[in-house]
C-alpha cells in the first residue's frame, strides 16, 4: 500500500502527523494512475486528515482537467469545492472519471 502520510509543520515548529483511510476509484483512462496494489479500478489509500480533493487528485497525477466527474460516496463535488478540506472522512469512497458519456 502506498503510504500517503504527510507531515505538517506548524509555524511554531510542531510536527503533526495524521491520516485516514479511504477508497480511491479511478476509472476509464485514469485507471493506470492507481497504485500498484489496486484491484481493477479500486485502491485503498491513506490520505491526510484535512486533504482536499485537489490535493489527492494532484498527488495521483490525475490532470485536473481529466478529473471531470468527482464523487464522494456517489455524490458529485463541483470544481469549486475541491479545494475545500474536511469533505472526506474515514472509509469514504472517492471516485473519479475523465469526461465520459454514454447512453
Amino acid at each position: 500500500m502506498r503510504k500517503h502520510k504527510t507531515r505538517r509543520i506548524a509555524p511554531d515548529g510542531a510536527v503533526a502527523e495524521s491520516f485516514m483511510q479511504i477508497t480511491l476509484k479511478l476509472f476509464a483512462t485514469l485507471g493506470d494512475l492507481l497504485p500498484s496494489n489496486a484491484v481493477r479500478n479500486v485502491a485503498t489509500i491513506n490520505v491526510d486528515d484535512d486533504a482536499t480533493l485537489h490535493s489527492i487528485i494532484d498527488s495521483y497525477r490525475v490532470p485536473r482537467e481529466l478529473a471531470h466527474l468527482v464523487l464522494i460516496n456517489g455524490v458529485f463535488v463541483c470544481d469549486a469545492d475541491r479545494d475545500q478540506s474536511g469533505l472526506l472522512k474515514e472509509g469514504d469512497v472517492l471516485a473519479i472519471w475523465p469526461p465520459v458519456a454514454g447512453g
Partner: peptide, 9 residues
C-alpha cells in the same frame, strides 16, 4: 463506461 458511473451514483 457508464456502468461504474451509474452504479457509483
Amino acid at each position: 463506461v457508464l456502468m461504474n458511473v451509474i452504479n457509483e451514483v
